[in-house]
Write a protein that binds this DNA or RNA. Sequence first.
DNA 1: CGCCCCGTTGAGGAGAGTCAATGGCTGTGG
DNA 2: CCACAGCCATTGACTCTCCTCAACGGGGCG
Lengths: 264, 264
Amino acid sequence: MDAEFRVGMSVFKRRLAQYVQLESDAWTLFDELERQDNVFRAGEDIIQAGEKANEVFILQSGWAIRYRLLEDGRRQIVNFMLPGDVFDLQALADLQADHSVTAITECHVAIIPSNPFIAMLQGSGRLASAFWWSAVQEESILREQIVRIGRRSARERIGHLLLELHRRYIGATGDEVDRLNMPLTRADIADALGLTPVHVSRTMSAMRRSGLIKEEKGSITLEDRDRLARLSYFDVDYLHLRKLNLLSAEVMPEDSATGELGDS
Amino acid sequence: MDAEFRVGMSVFKRRLAQYVQLESDAWTLFDELERQDNVFRAGEDIIQAGEKANEVFILQSGWAIRYRLLEDGRRQIVNFMLPGDVFDLQALADLQADHSVTAITECHVAIIPSNPFIAMLQGSGRLASAFWWSAVQEESILREQIVRIGRRSARERIGHLLLELHRRYIGATGDEVDRLNMPLTRADIADALGLTPVHVSRTMSAMRRSGLIKEEKGSITLEDRDRLARLSYFDVDYLHLRKLNLLSAEVMPEDSATGELGDS
DNA sequence: CGCCCCGTTGAGGAGAGTCAATGGCTGTGG
DNA sequence: CCACAGCCATTGACTCTCCTCAACGGGGCG
């Protein structure tokens, strides 16, 4: 985790580079951004609901969750943030956060004030595209989370979530293996999937017994990924992992400094 | 419905004007947009999953749903589109649609090709802000849908959904009454909330009996909105209905044609 | 050492699902 | 103008997935 952090923005760049082709001058703009590197301990809030953050966050290392609490204590985890994820672009509209974001493990976060960030987007249509892609992917993940919770059984939900986290984990780390870090407790998984910890435990035990997964302390191995994918009706399409066609590149010349939302 | 259609873009304008202050020159840009007015019959697809639409859609009248089908026929409705809603801004990133959009009632839809749309955003930071607000609101509605399905009982889900649709319906029509058009069948509500039609029917019958709602053909009245809100843990905040501070207005002068994503 | 958090397992219960029958409404065609 | 098909809402009876309550054990940490 420390190692990941020391390389600076590279997690985000690695993630983006898989989908968007970016030249070094775009990256220069990005690298020169004014920013602050913050560390949050496990359990600490990164953003609190109701707070108005005028910053954009990029998660460098660690896992975080976005969640909402009901008045009677029920918690729903809306989504997970993995290294390389950008969040609260909605802060650019100067809106209050309607959900909290909390570190699940220790998190290293780059915090970028809105204004320089906006200026950067204005400076490069391709960077703007890249961030727009990231926002579109996040929204797509939200939609899939709705399908997962609304129309899948407990086993399907867990399998589907594990496969998503696995793909996203690979995107962040670059390691193409069937094993991933798993800092989530049964309660976290339950609150993400609309189940109870007890039932998650039972269901995952059954999955272990049938050779679908293997758990070690702090990590999980997808022992039979194909079978898992079949029985969870997992279809990666929603992650939008194909290379993007950058609209901007066609619509307007590179040297034009306008056209931000365009690509985005 | 026909009356609504004849007034052109006004539904969208009315919705936006409640939250974003826009001068007439911005609207001029918007009004001059190249567009096509299409009519879709009930049940007809507006966007098909897998299709790459290079257009932005604005629903003028009628109701539509975004949904996804699992291989075995299960359907999950991801969200509802009401008059004034804009959809598939993600098409601007040249991505395939990962979900289908279908008309539930007859729908009048303005279809705007991406390029002129992008040009419009570039022409007015305030318009860009307005559309960004719309995208942020939509994402927030998705998150709330996750909480609704994941951590609420059947009665809470139905109550909460009705309250959301009611607020959004008011935003579109301007009528401040407790009654709204209800073209949804039990099956639609069930597929949106992760329930079965039978259970939705039972639960709504109970709600009728306890004086929470009243149903007539094609419409529903929220008889005791406060009680409904309390027992569904409904909190409007997530709809972001307050007036926006337009960042752009502060960050850059009105006459600058750059700064689109900035406000957005 | 002892506390606390976490995962697991058991027993019993409840909310929601499944299957099936009925009746109303609408549209259509003979 | 009526008969019939098709869709939709409702209700009953039964089932099952998932929840609740509870107890126990292991591991990390002060």
